[in-house]
Design a protein around this nucleic acid. Structure first.
Lengths: 181, 181, 181, 181
DNA sequence: CATGAATGAGCTTTCATTCAT
DNA sequence: TATGAATGAAAGCTCATTCAT
């Protein structure tokens, strides 16, 4: 169910996807959905919870390390794995449906984790440049793995490109960013 | 009308903003809106048309130049002006409400212009790294000028930060990006 | 104006034709229509008034005659002229948009005239057969002159066919109906 | 539901009858109607489908017979049964709301059946007189059974009158049409 | 004579949600 | 577990009509 719902949310957007559509694609009735999820928002919530779990793993690892360049680079690599894998669509959905998530506000389990993530990637610096670059690194992973742009440059190793650009953004300028993968 | 509508669209999202709300805020009836705009989508369309006009100016200038680093940097500076100014909210709206714009598809006057813009910024290179960086440069301008993040680091010169990071992204690596403004 | 309105009413129906459409086809504004007609119903009313005038002429003539078969046949011939001519569309409109006319009720200047007409055609008989035939004679004129059915049998002298069938309906059975025209 | 809707459609016309009215008369909400019918047009469509079924029975019988006078007369008798019975209101509705049905166009299951019916009644003749008479025979059944005209001549056996006039129209001229029923 | 701008009422339709079975 | 039937609320939109200019 979550998968089907996410597919539709990602394709058409949260607001434009009705429970009727989801139910029809699943060949069940709307009421059946309500047996599993208390509200429409709950469907997203459950998806976000899964992602939050993966973020927690990454964060737990990161907290154990000293915050070196290498640590941050490895952090980016782990996030890249998520963005390339099953969580890509969900993460892209989050980027493209921000108003829908705004109504979650504090119940969104991702907010705090994202904040912590960016702090680590920004090397705990208060420098707003670093903070902006941290955010952009994540956007790079999302845009770079977005199948929509694949048609334009077919055959390219999109995931690698995305990762390399993201690594640049978190690495000291004027130096090599290290090899991807 | 366009301004009020944009304010609400930007604040709550396109789908969550009803014509009733817009009308109420304007102290007119829904029917009055329909006198000026044939559909809800038309309201956005008229906003996008304005933005398309500004893009055209920038593009017209860019086409006249040889595509040097300096040209691209100046291009970014001009885009930054747009993102800092009256078009910031609209550009952010576009980024955050992509599903709503998807239904526009080919009628969206921005699509082709954005494509051309990215091509120029990517220095006509086929290299996907450059293309991704071009897109990220624009995102940098949008994120950096987003008032939502200003609360976190008050007092900073956000617009300058955004511009500097954007310039880095379009400048040859390993060198300074030049001073902003 | 009346002509354009009638064209649209006849083509799309009264309810499905908006004043906006009429105004657009006339290249004026809706408000301009309201200068000439107090309401939408008034437009029909003015059309019906014209038709009522023609009916009055026919009725005035009929009242002067003795009610013989020949009189009634001539009456039908005069009605046929109306149905073939400029009033055809209006009469067909009346037949096909009865609910729209129902709201006129007593203000419809045609009601009383039609009743009198049918009474004369039915030869003042109380016999319900004759009354039904009288009504059918008029329907024959309308159906027979309806361009919609012309495509099916092109080239036929539709008006003559309609008239002949109508004449049969008002003539004594078992006898010839007399030559048309 | 269909019955209540038809009652209102027949009384006030299709366009002037809102779903709110139908729902109120049924003591349910508008949304309940939409659970059973996908659109307002669908309500009529379902009614027409029922009538089409009855037409099919009549047509199936007619196709098995040789096309004699007696066949056509029996055909008219069977149609009379429909017009006197539950389908009378619907058939009258069709006659009086033709613009509403025009938007159905090809989805109207009655169009083709009516055409075949008229062809049979017209004895397969190309003679436009016969074709017009065939149509008028049906109109006779509708007008003759229309309760609106009953007030004028109370007590009469309207159904019989209608049938007799209809039979005349499909029988060779100059002869008796045979006794009704 | 005619328009631009607006309105109030109403429409068809859709949606998330509920609940007895 | 799931469904069929229904609901309340609201949405986008259209219409006939008005009126100051």
């Amino acid at each position: 169910m979550q998968q089907v719902a996410l597919d539709l949310f990602a394709e058409q957007g949260y607001e434009k996807t009705s429970l009727r559509e989801i139910a029809e694609k699943l060949d069940v009735t709307k009421a059946a959905l309500y047996y599993h999820f208390r509200t429409k928002e709950d469907i997203i919530a459950s998806l976000l919870d899964d992602l939050a779990g993966s973020f927690d793993e990454v964060l737990a690892w990161a907290r154990e390390q000293d915050n070196h360049v290498a640590t941050r680079q490895e952090l980016i690599r782990r996030l890249a794995k998520l963005a390339e894998g099953q969580f890509g669509p969900l993460m892209r959905f989050m980027q493209e449906n921000q108003p829908a998530l705004k109504s979650f506000q504090d119940r969104n389990p991702l907010s705090s984790r994202m904040t912590e993530l960016f702090t680590i990637i920004a090397a705990d610096e208060k420098d707003p440049h670093a903070q902006l670059r941290a955010r952009l690194a994540l956007v790079a992973l999302l845009l770079g793995n977005n199948p929509v742009y694949h048609a334009e440059t077919p055959g390219a190793a999109h995931a690698d490109v995305a990762l390399e650009v993201a690594l640049e953004l978190v690495s000291p300028r004027g130096r090599s960013a290290g090899k991807a993968t």
